[in-house]
Amino acid sequence: MKLGVMEKKVRSLYIRSRIPGVEWAVNQYVGCAFACKYCYAKFLCRWRDYGPWGTWVEVKINAAELARRRVKGSIVMSTVSDPYQPIEARLKLTRRVLRYMDKRNELSILTKSPLVVRDVDLFKEFRSIEVGLTINSFEGREKRLFEPLAPVQGTRITALQRLYEEGIRTYVFVSPIIPGITDVGAIVEETRDFTDYYFFEVLNLWAAGREFRELLRESYPGSYSVLKDDEKFETFLKGLREEIRRLGIRVEGIETHKHGWELVSP
């Protein structure tokens, strides 16, 4: 299916963030061609009549110009897209935005793409920057069902290591954690030597949408049952917290959705 690319001029690039501890969000793209089935940003389709999630990308063509604006506080990139999705290889919009941003701002970038290593030279210009890779251990059947168009896990891990070796502060965003599918221990063991910290997020069934709930229920009924049943879910969370503590890693937090954000110290 051909990707629909919608060009749009906007008034502002820096939007006040709802993420605790982060002042600003930057999304030079809206929508994502990785089209992950569980993506929470699918809600945007309610206000953009472009088609199903993953079939379109909105490009803020004046984003680089707007990036020159000076704001105070921390910035996260991106919250409703991936800044290094396939179209970025051609447009280089993320790279231009980074070039014009105030390098004194504290910047956090999250992606699933190994393309992120292209911009190491610009990352080094920032006073404070961190780059995270989303890693969830989805391979084989899970990869085909949940995120068939996203980069494979191995390329994400290689990108993480390359960034770390270049002196960039890195983190692993383990998400979504699905009971019986996401191997948290394996992810940590494979990445702990080149990761500064971890953030864990358990799948939010409601935010993932009706279609994904049905997909999970039909394909992995055991996982679905744990997420739906309060008692099973509490047992799962207890085991997850204990496993994270045993791993002895630096953890910024865990998002469980039913209980909100919490710090889990090793």
Score class of each variant (00 low, 15 high):
Asp49Met: 10
Gly209Arg: 06
Gly253Arg: 10
His259Gln: 14
Gly260Phe: 08
Arg68Glu: 09
Gly73Phe: 05
Asp102Ser: 11
Leu240Val: 03
Leu122Pro: 03
Val264Asp: 07
Glu58Lys: 15
Leu115Pro: 12
Leu44Lys: 14
Arg69Glu: 07
Thr79Glu: 14
Ile181Lys: 12
Gln85Cys: 00
Thr55Ile: 07
Lys103Asp: 11
Phe123Glu: 09
Ile87Phe: 02
Arg69Cys: 01
Leu44Cys: 09
Leu133Glu: 11
Leu227Ser: 04
Pro114Gln: 07
Pro221Ile: 03
Val202Met: 13
Glu255Lys: 10
Pro114Phe: 06
Asp183Met: 09
Glu211Leu: 02
Glu130Lys: 15
Asn136Arg: 13
Leu163Met: 09
Gln28Trp: 08
Leu247His: 07
Glu231Lys: 15
Val80Gly: 12
Tyr197Gly: 06
Leu110Met: 15
Ile249Asn: 02
Arg118Gln: 13
Tyr38Leu: 00
Phe43Asp: 04
Ala64Lys: 14
Arg118Cys: 07
Thr195Ala: 09
Glu252Asn: 14
Leu110Ser: 14
Lys232Pro: 08
Val97Trp: 10
Glu88Ala: 01
Asp183Pro: 01
Val226Gly: 05
Tyr198Val: 05
Val59Arg: 07
Arg210Tyr: 13
Phe43Gly: 02
Asp183His: 11
Val184Ser: 12
Thr111Gly: 13
Pro86Trp: 03
Lys2Ile: 11
Phe194Lys: 08
Lys8Gly: 05
Ile244Glu: 05
Asp183Cys: 06
Cys36Asp: 05
Arg169Tyr: 09
Leu227His: 03
Cys32Gln: 09
Asn204Leu: 11
Ala33Asp: 07
Gln28Val: 05
Ile19Lys: 04
Glu23Ile: 00
Ala89Ile: 05
Cys39Leu: 10
Glu231Gln: 12
Asn62Tyr: 02
Tyr171Ala: 03
Thr191Pro: 02
